[in-house]
Design a protein around this nucleic acid. Structure first.
Length: 564
RNA sequence: CGGGAUGUAGCGCAGCCCGGCUAGCGCGCUUGCCUUGGGCGCAAGAGGUCCCGGGUUCAAAUCCCGGCAUCCCGACCA
């Protein structure tokens, strides 16, 4: 491709709306342009890279037996009502105004519908179906360039199985394929256990890259490799120590003490003797939740215990139900409450908690003696430096970007849509599904986040838009022009993708800057000072190492480089 | 959806408080000359709904009201 004819509008200055490196560089390198919040046009160079990413994904999906589909983005609203997900997605799904159609944010329903109509026997299972297609989500706040957009490419795949062992196998195949995809794409990633959320199902893992601009938070152990989304992460933080003697409950006057920190200061006691109370509503049942000290409640963990519909109790409800305001609530003397306790408090005695009377607390509560506990669960958000639950090394808390997510769905969709097959005994059974996604633009953006310097992007061989960047330095020098033109032809004849900077109206410095910005990993620099000796210069974009190569050996040099 | 900021040429910005002459600067763009190993120089040009609508005023980019858009923080995020 001749740069003089190719549409690559590079920018010298950084557009002010772009804050993170990948977004800035994608704009500056002429790969994308914004059309509206969270909506991007891919220009020719950017789309070339998208296609490279898709190639890698497609290759590995085909390798595990995936069959590529192309499913419609327009879906009947009715289909989404069948599974109840029209309501679950709510405003996140785009609805058309002039027909009862929606723009699909994912494709479980469509897949399940096809399976329902055509998979009638266990003999037709298992199946791995996938597609790489545009997804639409009405994100309330798109951000970080293409990392969170309102429309984006996703590779989504689905396993259909007759047995739970089959699901496990399909899930494992995907986990392995994903590792290969991200490794080939040159991404430094880690895998975390994740919440399966409203997708339902039993197991779920996310493929993440660590990034300051990430929207997810993960706990990571650098020692043993444990990593988990904070939604589900656990640690070995010390539990309550039961004291030898349980003292008698006593009322303590605590005027103007609201928060745990104030209580700690007022009573001069260790945080681990304090039991913080929170009240949530599970349908019409109030639930009192006890946490140790100032431990924060993890709502994802809470929902896993109580169901998705729990909500924090309102202030007016709180006063009516307990007779006190937040800050003076406690587990003693409540009527009609369910009481659940964070595991960390298990066995605790001589604890201090609210008295359900404003400005009073109760001291020396023994959970075993005084409280009817409906269950102990892990409910807390872990903090940095807490000991790893596997190896006790201090955990790090990092921001991360989710590149891929794999789910064991089970029969949720088959049940809702009556997608049944006949098993060996002629019995009707629901098809067991798994669902697996990769964000295509995110792979591209994350690669740039991890591979750039102050001059621009540094592609690797798998994702680079062209194999080599041929820079003709002195376009007024006949010898240089003829050598560069000749090389361009020869390289193309050897099936090497060349971006040829043949512009004659641009100074050498400009060409070098553009080459570094675009980041093609190997630059061939044809300039006067080397050409007169029958040589050209090879520059490695990543290391900036330069090597002088004889003209006749350029093609074989490049071929060797590409194979290495 | 709550909080904050911004909106002036393709891009980056100044001007706005404190209303007033033809709305300005850098980059980019066009033309000519020049230059050719790190965003080159000189000269001449083109390019504007000052986000939109309303109001105040002799006079509005500037003040007031309403709206829209974009970005950031938070909430949300299968």
């Amino acid at each position: 491709m001749r740069l003089s004819k190719y549409f690559i509008p590079t920018l010298k200055e950084i557009p002010s709306d772009a804050l993170i490196p990948s977004h800035q560089l994608m704009l500056r390198a002429g790969m994308i342009r914004s059309l509206g919040a969270g909506v991007y046009s891919f220009l020719p160079l950017g789309y070339r890279i998208i296609k490279k990413v898709m190639d890698v994904i497609r290759d590995e999906m085909d390798a595990i037996g995936g069959q590529e589909f192309h499913l419609p983005a327009l879906n009947p609203l009715e289909l989404w009502e069948e599974t109840g997900r029209a309501k679950d997605f709510g405003d996140t799904m785009f609805h058309l105004k002039n027909r009862p159609l929606v723009l699909a944010p994912t494709h479980e329903e469509v897949i399940c519908q096809i399976a329902k109509n055509h998979i009638k026997s266990y003999r037709a299972l298992p199946q791995i179906w996938y597609q790489i297609q545009m997804k639409f989500r009405n994100e309330p706040r798109p951000r970080s360039g293409v990392i969170r957009g309102r429309q984006f490419f996703m590779k989504d795949s689905y396993t259909l199985d007759a047995t739970w062992e089959g699901l496990d196998k399909g899930y494992e195949l995907h986990a392995e394929a994903y590792k290969k995809i991200f490794t080939r794409a040159g991404l430094k990633y880690f895998i975390v256990g994740a919440s399966s959320g409203a997708m339902g199902g039993s197991a779920s893992q996310e493929f993440m890259i660590e990034s300051e601009s990430g929207e997810d938070t993960c706990a990571v152990c650098d020692h043993c490799g444990y990593a988990a989304n904070l939604e589900v992460a656990t640690s070995n933080i010390p539990k309550a120590q039961r004291e030898k003697e349980s003292k008698e409950i006593q009322e303590i006057h605590t005027p103007n003490v609201g928060t745990i920190d104030e209580l700690k200061e007022f009573l001069k006691v260790d945080e681990r003797f304090l039991a913080k109370s929170l009240v949530y509503m599970q349908d019409k049942t109030p639930v009192l939740i006890l946490m140790m000290g100032n431990d924060q409640l993890n709502e994802t963990k809470l929902r896993a215990v109580l169901g998705a519909d729990v909500r924090p109790c309102r202030q007016d409800e709180l006063l009516m139900l307990t007779g006190a305001d937040a800050g003076s609530i406690g587990p003693i003397g409540l009527q009609g409450f369910k009481i659940i306790v964070d595991k960390r408090l298990k066995g605790g005695n001589n604890l201090i908690s609210g008295a359900n009377k404003n400005d009073y607390h109760l001291g020396d509560i023994d959970l075993q003696r005084d409280v009817k506990v409906d269950g102990y669960y892990d409910l807390r958000i872990i903090n940095a430096h807490e000991p790893c639950s596997k190896c006790n090394s201090p955990l790090r808390i990092v921001n991360a970007i989710e590149l891929g997510h794999i789910f064991k769905l089970g029969t949720k969709y088959a049940d809702a849509m009556h997608a049944y097959y006949l098993d060996e005994d002629g019995k009707e059974k629901p098809i067991i599904m798994g669902s697996y996604g990769i964000g295509v633009e995110r792979m591209m953006a994350c690669f740039i986040e991890q591979n750039h310097d102050k001059h621009g992007i540094i592609w690797n061989k798998a994702l680079t838009p062209f194999h080599v960047h041929l820079v003709m330095v002195n376009s007024n020098n006949e010898k240089v022009v003829s050598v560069a033109e000749n090389l361009y032809t020869k390289l193309q004849q050897s099936l090497i993708d060349v971006l040829f900077d043949d512009r004659d109206d641009v100074s050498p410095g400009f060409k070098f800057k553009d080459a570094d910005l675009l980041g093609i990993p190997l630059q061939i620099i044809v300039g006067e000072k080397n050409v007169i000796h029958g040589n050209v210069e090879m520059k490695d974009r990543r290391t900036s190492k330069r090597e002088i190569v004889e003209l006749g050996k350029v093609v074989s040099f490049v071929e060797k480089y590409l194979e290495s």
